[in-house]
């Protein structure tokens, strides 16, 4: 075994340990902030695995999307509702924990069975390394165009939905005086007359 492969094996073992322990921590820790930060760590470790597989573009995209966007969003949500409240004790928590543990263990068994019984085609195809970026672009705009566009339409729908939910409905004229509403009036007053009560 030469230096390169042993380094690779060592990195893989470290990353795999981080992923397994980190994911267990995400699920089992009671402090939700720790869970969120650990989730970020797990995403980083997954990006490390992509790097080991010679897929640097996918690794960078993983960091950008999952760590930089998804995880930061989760943290934001947690910190903006940073309210300490006493949780009510849940009825039959032990039974529930046992049941969910059993379901997870069953799923794990199923996956392990799939891993063992599938005839994997080893070693896999040669990684194309730096050309991967161009290849991904080609695929996105030729044979995977429809899924790509569908995903972007889905994201657009989610964004419009979020805006509709977060926006306050505003009447076109002031209920009290009958004046037409201008941008200045909305910004300056936040007047309760302008808010359409029926829609909320």
């Amino acid at each position: 075994m030469n230096i390169a492969t042993s380094t690779e094996l060592f990195c893989f073992l470290v990353l795999a340990t981080v992923i397994v322990l980190g994911s267990l921590g995400v699920v089992l820790l009671s402090n939700i902030v720790y869970s969120a930060f650990l989730l970020g760590g797990v995403f980083m470790a997954v990006a490390g695995l992509y790097l080991l597989l010679n897929a640097s573009f996918v690794a960078a995209a993983q960091v950008l999307v999952y760590v930089g966007a998804v995880n930061v969003l989760i943290l934001f949500a947690i910190m903006l509702v940073n309210k300490r409240e006493e949780m009510k004790p849940i009825q039959g928590i032990r039974l529930r924990r046992f049941l969910s543990g059993a379901v997870c263990a069953g799923l794990l068994l199923l996956l392990v069975r799939v891993v063992i019984t599938t005839p994997w085609n080893l070693p896999g195809p040669e990684p194309i390394g730096e050309e991967a970026t161009a290849r991904i672009g080609e695929h996105l705009f030729t044979d995977y165009l429809l899924p790509f566009e569908l995903a972007s339409v889905l994201l657009l729908m989610a964004m419009i939905g979020a805006i509709v939910l977060a926006r306050r409905e505003v009447l076109t004229s002031d209920v009290g005086t009958g004046d037409a509403v201008t941008q200045g009036l909305i910004e300056q007053a936040q007047s309760p007359f302008l808010i359409d009560e029926s829609s909320t």
Partner: peptide
Amino acid sequence: NVGVGIFLWISLSSIQPI
């Protein structure tokens, strides 16, 4: 001279907010 170059910088700088 990594192939993803400048994209690596963009993705690394997105870790900072955490």
